[in-house]
């Protein structure tokens, strides 16, 4: 067993802080990609096209999942464990739905004659949206762990840090998606 020897005097838990630094790092990767996108767009050979409709549905799923995540976190804090469990489950399903809809979106694009190597503009869409999707998948994996924990017997331990970390990450991928969507709509 472990006892506390590490003085924790700072306001923010180190794991939460670590997550914020990680978020900054992930943002830098997308900053790299989006600035490359802008540079390329100003050169020859750029194709302008409509985003597939599926992306709008996926956006709705993503926003809904953020709301359920937020509620789940609240229920956890209020020790309403059954409600917490069902909200986590809904969040998890919405996350899967989001990823599925992104895949549908790419299938529609390819059907409409815009496969990945059609033009640099399309390639960028695949890479940017795909990498965002990979981050959502990472979140889903983390949700599965939270999920397993929520249904295990030892949920009596009311440590909210992992739940908070999970929720923050989930909201982050949500905001990131909305930002990317606006970016991709505005700069074509």
């Amino acid at each position: 067993m472990r006892t506390v020897a590490m003085e924790q005097r700072k306001k923010i838990h180190p794991h939460k802080f670590t997550l914020w630094v990680a978020i900054a790092s992930i943002l830098m990767m997308f900053a790299g990609l989006t600035s490359a996108y802008i540079v390329k767009r100003n050169q020859a050979n750029w194709l302008s096209f409509e985003l597939p409709i599926a992306f709008w549905y996926s956006t709705a799923a993503m926003i809904a999942s953020s709301i359920t995540m937020w509620q789940a976190q609240r229920k956890f804090k209020n020790r309403e464990i059954p409600a917490y469990r069902s909200l986590i489950t809904v969040t998890f399903i919405l996350g899967l739905l989001f990823v599925a809809l992104q895949v549908v979106g790419f299938t529609i694009l390819a059907k409409n004659g815009l496969p990945m190597n059609k033009n640099v503009a399309v390639s960028f869409l695949y890479v940017i949206v795909g990498l965002h999707g990979a981050h959502v998948v990472g979140g889903i994996v983390a949700l599965m762990v939270t999920f397993a924990k929520a249904f295990s017997k030892s949920v009596r331990n009311y440590n909210s840090v992992p739940v908070d970390v999970m929720a923050t990450y989930w909201h982050f991928v949500d905001f990131l998606w909305i930002y990317l969507l606006i970016f991709l709509l505005a700069i074509r």
Binding site: R2, V4, M6, H13, H15, N157
Partner: peptide, 16 residues
């Protein structure tokens, strides 16, 4: 922060 301070199980480094 209080809940964080109460639950240190996850601080693996917390060795005495």
């Amino acid at each position: 922060s209080t809940s964080a301070a109460l639950h240190h199980e996850d601080l693996h480094s917390a060795h005495d």
